[in-house]
Amino acid sequence: MNAKEQVQQISGVNPYKCMKCGKCSATCPAYEEMDIKPHQFVSYVQSGNIEALAACKSMWKCLSCFACVERCPRDVQPGRILDAARQIVVRQRGGNYLTAEEIPPLVDEDLPQQLLVSAYRRYKR
């Protein structure tokens, strides 16, 4: 299975359903922080440019808030595509975006456990 097929399989998304309306990018609250924009996730998969997608910063900026998923008129779910790219990265050795050592200085008194749990699941294998 090549990388393109792998993204399609993990995400369960058919990128060819996209009609390129850009509503995902219009609605994304993390848009400004992203180097590859939500509507581009889809075209990167269409053109098989998974290497670039797997190197993007966007996957660490996505909030998994599902605004793009909810509002997509074609049910493409760009957030799922990005998550699949992230999976491919964190499943590789050294692919983690967060290490245990980094955490202690980031924790303050009020920090809910939920935040650590979510960040771990999101950033680490």
Binding site: K20, C21, G22, K23, C24, S25, A26, T27, C28, Y31, E32, K37, H39, A67, R71, P73
Partner: peptide
């Protein structure tokens, strides 16, 4: 502008903040 609108947010002053994509300029 080529791009869809994602959200229209009514503002306290009565205006409407329209958040959309500009796909040609690659901007929100």
């Amino acid at each position: 502008i080529k791009g869809q609108v994602g959200k229209v947010a009514p503002q306290p002053d009565g205006s409407l903040l329209v958040q959309g994509s500009d796909l040609i300029d690659n901007k929100q």
